Amino acid sequence: MSLKSTFKGFLGETVINVAMWLKLEKDVYHRLNGITLPRANGGSTQIDHIIVSVYGIFVIETKNYKGWIYGSENQKQWTQAFPNGSKFKFQNPLRQNYLHIKTLADLLGLELSYFHSMIAFIGECELKTRDELPEHVLTGGMV
């Protein structure tokens, strides 16, 4: 991972973190950021944001991307494309966040029904396959 992409990821996560701090009632929503958890088969997984509330546990994957985003719910990889014709593949964030939720549920001994997945795209991107994606894949209004 390049320094530039690491910085963009950090910046995106910081934007969401500040928005949550400003907008969410602190006595109702408890925020955790940048949580690394061990996986059952070895290795680890890093969760951008977790919000614990009486409404459930919200697990948020943040993507700070530009360009056009193509993908469907069941694809392994999605594509980021630019007007100049360049394209880049990246892991389907829905699948990525499912792994986060499954890991967290297993560690806490909770059923998956307590968890809510959210994918927050920030930056100047446009989801070109909006009709093929669940409502919890957002490009705005996340908080």
Rank of each mutant, 00 (worst) to 15 (best):
L3T: 13
K4M: 02
G9E: 09
F10I: 04
V15L: 15
V18N: 15
E25Q: 10
K26P: 11
K26V: 10
D27F: 01
Y29W: 14
H30E: 00
G34Y: 00
T36F: 02
N41E: 12
G42F: 07
G43A: 05
T45K: 04
I47E: 05
D48H: 01
I51M: 02
V54Q: 13
G56V: 01
G56K: 00
I57P: 03
I57T: 12
I57L: 06
F58W: 12
V59A: 05
E61F: 14
K63M: 13
N64V: 04
W68P: 03
W68M: 10
I69F: 06
G71Q: 07
Q77V: 11
Q77C: 09
T79R: 12
F82E: 11
F82C: 05
N84V: 07
S86M: 10
N97A: 04
N97Q: 06
N97T: 10
Y98P: 00
H100I: 13
H100A: 08
T103K: 06
T103G: 11
D106W: 05
D106E: 15
L107F: 08
L108Q: 06
G109S: 10
L110Q: 03
S113N: 14
Y114T: 01
S117H: 01
M118L: 15
M118N: 04
I119S: 05
I119K: 00
A120Q: 04
F121V: 06
I122Q: 07
E124D: 15
E126Q: 15
T129H: 12
D131P: 12
E132A: 14
L133C: 03
